[in-house]
Each structure stands twice: as structure tokens, then as C-alpha cells.
């Protein structure tokens, strides 16, 4: 079989690009299991750095902060997104395009600028760096992704399913919880997972808004590696990577990752 030059070049380019993306991750993972700090190639395998990272109360606390923050921000963003999407998908109202743009704007504005602006604004209204500010920041940050995914689910949703429920005597709220949400379940799972991963990995918002004593993991990790050069930081980074990877695998299993990112309807049958 003859494969022409162009095809070979395309393949080469693809592999190089992928290697370029994966190289830092691979190095991080290698360093975190290497008994000899920062000497490559690794001479053996150790879990010592992971043990050190996971027994450090500072890191465990930060992980708990990230976990709680991620869950709270994800749930509030999705609750808001669901309401917004019900209005955006089902009704026409003046200024609809503007509202849509407003919700999507956190994606369009560079994260650092957005974080700074939010910090200044929250400081003005007396919140400053606080747990509330952090939750608000993360909620706004993940909201557009939730809106995107839920809108796709609801666009393909057959509203006669809801009418049928109302017809047999279900109230509007009952219909939402017994019919609408279960039917768009896969979309909802995608949205929750993606939002959590985005919050879990966020650095710029947390740096600006985290109050003292309530530091999310990425910020904690940053301040650690700024002053200390050892493989504990790499082990912690690896932990973050692995947890994100697990979440992404769940997301993929639930819906197909490409469809989730493109915002196509996950799992809604016509």
C-alpha cells in the first residue's frame, strides 16, 4: 500500500503535537514515582512522595477545600443553569441573545482579568476574599459550561413528555423532578462532572478570592513548589491529574466526551 508524503507528514505532526502535550504530564508522573528526586531516567518505583503528599495535613486540608468548593459551585451553577436554560430554550423574550451572551461571557474573558475584576467588585461590596466570594467566582466560572450542556439536552427534549405528566396530575415541580431531570440524566451527569473538574483545576480565581486558611489545592500546590523543590509537589500534581482523568473517563462513559464538549445532546433520543 502506498502512503504519500503528505499523509506521513500529517501523522508525524500529529504525534509530535500529542507528545508535546503529554510530555509535561509524563514527566510529572515519572518524577512522582522516582526514588531519586529529579534524576532521569527513574531508577525504580516508589510511593514515598505520594505518601508524603497525602499525609501532609496542609495538602489534605487543601484537597478538602477544593472538594467542598467544587461540589458547592457545581451544584449552584447547575441549579442556576437549569433555570436559565429552561427560559432560553423554551421561551422567546426581548434581550434573549444578550442574556445568552452574558452567561457565556466568562468563557470569552481571560481568566486572570475576570478574576481581578471579580475581586475588585466583591471587595467593593464588602465580600473581598472570602468563602462566599470563592463560591461565587467558581460558580460564575463553570456556569457557561453547564448552560451549554443542559441547553443541548433540553433542545432535543420532547415537551410532550412533560405535558403527559401534567395531564396525569403531576404539578410543574413534580414533572421537573420525575420526568425532565431523569430524561436528561446523561446531560446532567456530563454537566456536573465537567463543572466539577473545571472548579477542581482552577487556579486564577482561587488565587484572587481564596481567604486565608481556606486555600484550594492548586493554589496550595503553587505556593509549595514556589519555595520547595522536591518530588512531593510532583506527587500532588500527579494526584490532581489522575483525579481529573478519572472524572473525564466517567464523563466519556456517560456521554461521549466529544459530544459533551461540543454541547451536543448527550443521550437524548429523538
Amino acid at each position: 500500500m502506498r502512503i504519500d508524503f503528505g499523509t506521513w507528514m500529517l501523522r508525524l505532526f500529529t504525534y509530535v503535537a500529542m507528545a508535546f502535550l503529554f510530555f509535561p504530564i509524563a514527566i510529572t508522573l515519572l518524577v512522582s514515582i522516582n526514588p531519586n528526586e529529579f534524576i532521569l531516567p527513574p531508577t525504580g518505583v516508589t510511593m514515598e512522595w505520594f505518601r508524603a503528599a497525602w499525609t501532609s495535613s496542609k495538602f489534605v486540608d487543601a484537597m478538602v477545600v477544593s472538594l467542598v468548593l467544587g461540589i458547592v459551585a457545581t451544584l449552584s451553577a447547575n441549579a442556576l443553569a437549569l433555570l436559565a436554560v429552561l427560559a432560553l430554550v423554551r421561551y422567546n423574550f426581548p434581550g434573549k441573545a444578550f442574556v445568552n451572551l452574558l452567561i457565556m461571557s466568562p468563557i470569552l474573558i481571560p481568566a486572570t482579568i475576570f478574576s481581578l475584576a471579580l475581586y475588585v467588585f466583591l471587595a467593593r461590596i464588602g465580600l473581598g476574599g472570602s468563602i462566599t466570594s470563592l463560591v461565587i467566582g467558581h460558580t460564575i466560572h463553570v456556569l457557561p459550561f453547564a448552560v451549554r450542556i443542559l441547553a443541548a439536552s433540553l433542545q432535543n427534549f420532547d415537551t410532550s413528555l412533560e405535558e403527559a405528566a401534567r395531564n396525569v396530575g403531576a404539578s410543574g415541580t413534580r414533572t421537573l423532578f420525575s420526568i425532565t431531570l431523569p430524561v436528561i440524566k446523561t446531560g446532567l451527569i456530563s454537566s456536573l462532572t465537567l463543572c466539577f473538574v473545571l472548579s477542581w483545576n482552577d487556579f486564577p480565581i482561587s488565587v484572587f478570592l481564596a481567604p486565608p486558611g481556606w486555600t484550594p489545592l492548586p493554589v496550595e500546590l503553587y505556593s509549595y513548589i514556589k519555595y520547595q523543590y522536591d518530588a512531593v509537589g510532583a506527587a500532588l500534581a500527579s494526584s490532581l491529574i489522575i483525579l481529573s482523568a478519572i472524572a473525564i473517563i466517567i464523563l466519556d462513559r456517560a456521554t461521549g466526551i466529544r459530544r459533551a464538549i461540543r454541547g451536543e445532546a448527550p443521550g437524548v433520543k429523538s
Partner: peptide, 10 residues
Amino acid sequence: FVFQNYALWP
């Protein structure tokens, strides 16, 4: 009410 597309809850 019986719907044209049946509207059974999937």
C-alpha cells in the same frame, strides 16, 4: 390525553 408520538416516559 393520548399523544400523537405517544409521549411515553423513556
